[in-house]
Amino acid sequence: MDTIKGRVWVFGDNVDTDQIIPAERLVAANLDHLNDYIFEKVRPGFAQEVRKGDILVAGRNFGCGSSREHAPLSLIEAGFSCIIAESFARIFYRNSMNIGLLLVECKVDVREGETVEVDPDNGKVVAEGKEYSFPEYPPFISELVKAGGLMNLVREGRF
């Protein structure tokens, strides 16, 4: 995988899926523009500010709560290239890896608006001149990421 570089948005601990995209937006008619609603209750106007390639940095337990795949989908559609968090909630982790949103489990100190660099293959993050490392993906997960998501594995009969 290529190295990713992007502008950072900073969030705290326990960002739940209701914050990422509220339940009232979860109708099929919104499926092609979920990004319009990201963080609308907690950071109004956020959807308009995010640019393609941005990176979201958060604390512990990012994505806790509902199993709604709308959460990682909306973040992909908003243009995020990757989410870095100290830890991720389980279903959000599965969903993201299954649909091709790159997650990096790493505690990173960075201010909003700064640029960070992520090197997924070598497990490295560089932020404000400081280097951080994160653990290798388990073999199955890295296969999933390389295949470009779960559906490609199924299509190729590798599932």
Binding site: G65, S66, S67, E69, I91, R94, N95, N98, I99, G149, L150, M151, V154, F159
Partner: peptide, 26 residues
């Protein structure tokens, strides 16, 4: 189940857990 509270059925000795929609399709 593509709903996070699928873990409910552990109450009657099942291993049940929430998943996403794409993997439900799989």
């Amino acid at each position: 189940g593509a709903d996070s509270h699928t873990c409910t059925y552990g109450g009657i000795n099942a291993f049940s857990t929430g998943i996403g929609s794409t993997e439900a399709a799989a």
